[in-house]
Amino acid sequence: MIEPLDRQLLTAIQQGLAITPRPYTELAEKLALSEQDVVTRISNLKRSGLIKRFGIIVKHRRLGYRANAMVVWDIPDALVDELGQRISQQPFVNLCYQRPRQGEIWPYNLFCMIHGKSREVVEAQLQTLISECGLETFNYEVLFSRRCFKQCGAIYPASQG
């Protein structure tokens, strides 16, 4: 599925690239590759989609985006892919995932995230989302975030086992 060398590479860079003129030198040495090889591998991982994006990871809350709503929808199974794609194209939507329903206690199968500077802005964006994507007839709930107890970048384990 993934080459061991690429796995090692991703494990090493996932917590962040050094902010120095030659950020790959140390890593290349550790993996017995040239810096150019490391860069080529990263570029291939981006092309294959394993790396969704590579760049600066911002902290939304610190930058004034304090309102964060997870909106969950109960969409008929036959429509979920089409509507998921449509929702994900709205510029203010940050994430859009299909997840399994959990019976009556949690009938929702589509999740999206909206980050905004205020609750009012996010609520207005949600209304735009509903009308733009034709979501008027589906049940949904809005879960604004309150406290953040923990937030760190995804840390994937070094090896399978």
Partner: peptide, 29 residues
Amino acid sequence: VLSALTELSEQQFISRVGPVIRPNHIGVS
């Protein structure tokens, strides 16, 4: 550029410079 990025990182405006890895391709989440 290096100074500005270091400031952004120290002041917690950015968490890192790095990859966002597709979920469930290395390990499971």
